[in-house]
């Protein structure tokens, strides 16, 4: 456990506040008219996913969590838990889905991810910024519908519902922005 000055905290820093692990989602520097410099933080609780907004003076000491980065293979999901295997030690362990809801749309069985671990707890599943996914279900484009910019919804192999241009067909691969869940482009392998 290391100490860090609040002024040095960046987006993505892992912090311990009131004995709960958090990741910094947003950091804003505030300098009130006539006062010390402060840092306003939006933190995501890595156990409950609850959001906490706090303000620290830039000089405050905060507890930074010394995390481990572990490379793991995603084995499968049973609906409540993700099952992973540490690729170095072959140890298997579980991660509750509810704390990492978003991850289920971007992990395919057998793929490898970097996990942020602290003691025996998985704090974060590091997803790539973009992910290529197969379209599992798509409505047929309506004949004659040539309006540019027309969109429809498709379902990917991971069960993610994505708004895409009308020309995307079932079985095609699309690139999705992981943070926003938005379609980016069609991938022609």
């Amino acid at each position: 456990m290391g100490m860090i000055k609040a002024g040095a905290i960046a987006k993505g820093t892992y912090l311990l506040e009131k004995n709960e692990p958090f990741i910094v989602a947003e950091r804003e520097f505030v300098n009130p008219g006539k006062g010390s410099a402060f840092v306003r933080l939006k933190l995501k609780n890595l156990r409950s996913a609850a959001v906490l907004k706090i303000t620290h003076k830039s000089q405050d000491n905060c507890e930074e969590i010394d995390v481990d980065e572990v490379e793991c293979q995603f084995l499968y999901s049973d609906g409540t838990l993700f099952h992973f295997m540490d690729t170095a030690t072959f140890d298997q362990f579980e991660v509750p889905i509810k704390t990492h809801e978003n991850a289920r749309f971007y992990m395919l069985e057998g793929e490898t991810f970097k996990l942020t671990r602290w003691n025996d707890e998985t704090l974060d599943i590091r997803l790539p910024p973009k992910k290529d996914l197969l379209v599992a279900e798509a409505e047929e484009a309506v004949k004659g519908d040539t309006v540019t910019g027309a969109t429809k919804y498709v379902i990917t192999e991971t069960n993610l519902k994505v708004k895409v241009p009308i020309f995307i067909k079932q079985g095609e691969k699309i690139r999705v922005n992981v943070e926003s869940g938005e379609y980016q482009e069609r991938i022609n392998d």
Binding site: P32, T55, K57
Partner: peptide
């Protein structure tokens, strides 16, 4: 129960700004 630093030694204006920035300004 606002998370805070060394508030036992802080000046009135720092404490005021802590309250103002956390509860009011936003």
């Amino acid at each position: 129960n606002l998370p805070s630093g060394d508030i036992d030694r802080e000046s009135a204006d720092d404490l005021f700004h802590r309250l103002f920035l956390t509860l009011v300004e936003d």
